[in-house]
Structure formats: C-alpha cells, structure tokens
Amino acid sequence: MAHRYKVREIAQQCGLSEATVDRVLNDRPGVRENTRAEVQQAIADLDKQRAQLRLNGRRFLIDVIMHTPQRFSDAFRSAVEAELPAFAPALVRARFHLWEAGTTAQMVDELTRIRGTHGVILKAQDEPDVAEAIDRLVSSGVPVVTYATDVPTSMRCGYVGIDNHGAGLTAAYLVDQWLGATASDVLITVSRTVFRGEGEREMGFRSGLRPSGRAVVEVTDSDGIDATTERLVFDALRRHPSVRAVYSPGGGNTATLAAFDRLGRDCSVFIAHDLDADNRRLLRDGRISAVLHNDLRADARTAVRLILQHNGALPAEPAKPTPIQIVTPYNLP
C-alpha cells in the first residue's frame, strides 16, 4: 500500500523493523495492537515534523474583526496574543478591528477594506450583505473563520465556538432546577438579534424552559453596553414584577444587576456567558449563579490553525464545537 512516508523513514522514527512496519501499513495479521499504535504514533510525529518544516521562516498576518462589547473583545484579544507564539517557527501577527456598537454597513466596509491579510477571524452579524462581503474575501483567496456567532450562508472556511443551541438548553435546565418550586418568570438579555449565536442560544433556552410554563421576558438591541442594558432591563423589570431570574447570552450583567438593585428586587438565579473580568467579579461576589464558559485560548488556537491550514502551512484537521464549561464560584479557574 502506498504511503506518504517511506517504510524505512517510519521504521527509523518508531524503532521497529521495516518488515514490522510493512505488516502494519498493509494491515496484515500477527501484529500486536501496541505495535500498531507505535507505528501510528510515529506517523503522527512525522506529520508534526513536516508541518514544522513548512512553517519554518514563514510569516502570516491575520485580521481579527469583531462587533462585540469591549469586555469580550479584550478577553479574546488577550487569548489570541497569548497563542500566537505557539505557532513558531512561523511568525504570526494579528491586527485587531474592534468596536462595540455599529451597523451592518460598517461591518461590510471593514471587510471590504481589508488588504494584505492571510486570513480573518470574524464575529459579525448574520446578514446577507455581510455574507456577500465574506464571499468576496474568500473568492480573492482570503480564508474567513467565523467566531462565537456564525454566518452559515457565506463561504467562510469554518466556525469556531460552542454549540449555541445546546448552551441555551443548558441554561434553561440550570435556571429551572435552581428555581425549583419558586414562582418566577425569566428575563433574557440579547445584545442584538442579528447575531446568530445569541439567537440560537435564545431558541435553545426558550425550548428548554417551555415545559416549566415560565414566561420569558426579552430585552434586546442593547449591544451589551452597560448604560443601554441597565435602562432597558429597568423598564422590563418594572413591567414584569414576576421576574426573579436571568439568562444573559448577550452580556451587560453588571448593568442588569444594577437595575434589580435600583428596584430593590432580588435575582434568585443568574446564568451568564464567558469568564470576562466582570463575570469573574460577579461570581466571586455571589451575584451570578453560574457562567457558561469556553476556553478562549483554545478557540483562538483553533481559529488561527484553520487559517494556516487553508494557507497550506498545516495539515487539515476538522474543527469541533468547543465544550461548554459550567463555572460556579467554587470551580472558578
């Protein structure tokens, strides 16, 4: 059977005879499983070494474009910057284009102006104009990886992030379990409906909470900005005195709790997303119940790897959904 490495090369790597390696590669009988495992590990090691040679001396420039609250963009920027040295011997640099509030036209303009890049990591609205801008980039040879929220109708080369629908179901389960027999409706805060990821979280949450009979009160279009969030939540709480729990897929949690405090209302259960600085503090202070978190550094590493793969610098590897971690004050990393 033809193989990408010579039998002699694999035998040298694993310290076995060429005859043994040949039997493994051709799936012949009489070979122990641990011997097969040694040969497969040798091939994997050779793949890594080949990848290192392809990376040696190469330079890559990646653009990170995000419409998101600063608390999240700061955390993701730190994750990207921490992971870039791991791609040595290649030199990978990143440019960041980050803003909290803006329009679809602003996002399209930013995507249109990108020049001299080897790839884009993108958190953007799921809008037709955005999809078309992504398609133009990809058609010009620039791979685009969507992050945290997808634009699935585009030609993007991959999505990195959690299963958002599953996250919403998880939040609904936690809220209903912790509320128990307490009569309470639930507030959900969505930063903007054009972000597919938050929409999927909301759909999962509504689906999971439906059997409980609890009403879901929605606050949206805050962009996750504190001042706007507090005003919208305050108005919603005044209109719905039965709300005693919150699911926040869109952020602005300090502002949401400030609105409860202004009305002298308790929040019995609060489920949030992402371990940014605000949520760490709120967890330590016992103001929120749990955070649905994913490892931002692992996300950054996967996104950069996808871009390097599409530039032919690394072997192809399928991207898998990021596991969801349930973080409480007692397992806060």
Rank of each mutant, 00 (worst) to 15 (best):
E38T: 07
L46A: 02
R50G: 03
D47W: 10
Q52W: 10
A82Q: 13
L84Q: 06
T112V: 05
A42E: 10
T68C: 13
A42G: 11
R77E: 13
A94E: 04
R95C: 10
A44D: 12
I114A: 14
E83A: 14
A86E: 10
R71M: 09
L91Y: 12
G57T: 03
T103C: 00
L61W: 07
I62Y: 03
T68L: 14
G116I: 06
T35H: 00
T35R: 00
E83C: 10
D63Y: 12
D109C: 01
V80R: 03
V92L: 07
A101C: 07
L111H: 05
A75Y: 05
A44M: 08
Q70P: 09
W99T: 00
D47Q: 10
F60C: 06
T103W: 00
L91S: 15
V108G: 01
L111G: 08
A44Q: 12
R115I: 06
T68F: 14
A90V: 05
Q49A: 15
T103H: 00
L91R: 15
V108A: 05
M107I: 14
D63I: 08
D47H: 12
E100F: 05
V39L: 02
F60A: 09
A94W: 01
T112I: 04
Q41W: 06
V39S: 05
F76V: 07
R115P: 00
R113L: 14
E100N: 11
E100P: 05
L98A: 09
S78A: 15
L61G: 05
T68P: 01
E81Q: 11
T35P: 05
A88Y: 09
A75R: 07
A75M: 09
R93S: 15
F72K: 05
V80A: 05
N56Y: 14
W99D: 04
E100M: 09
P89S: 01
T104H: 02
A44V: 03
D74N: 14
I43S: 00
Q106A: 11
Q40C: 01
D45H: 08
D74K: 15
A51Y: 02
V92F: 06
V39F: 02
R36Y: 04
L46V: 01
Q40P: 01
Q41F: 07
P69K: 05
I62D: 00
A37I: 00
Q41R: 15
L46Q: 02
L61Y: 06
I43P: 01
A88E: 10
L91M: 14
A88V: 06
Q41V: 02
T103V: 01
R115L: 08
K48D: 12
V108Q: 01
D63C: 12
R50S: 09
L111T: 06
A51C: 04
L98N: 12
Q40K: 12
P89E: 00
E81G: 00
R77T: 14
P85Y: 06
R77F: 06
R113K: 15
K48F: 13
F96P: 03
D47Y: 08
R59S: 15
A82C: 09
N34G: 11
A88T: 11
E100L: 03
R58P: 09
E83Y: 04
G116C: 08
L111P: 03
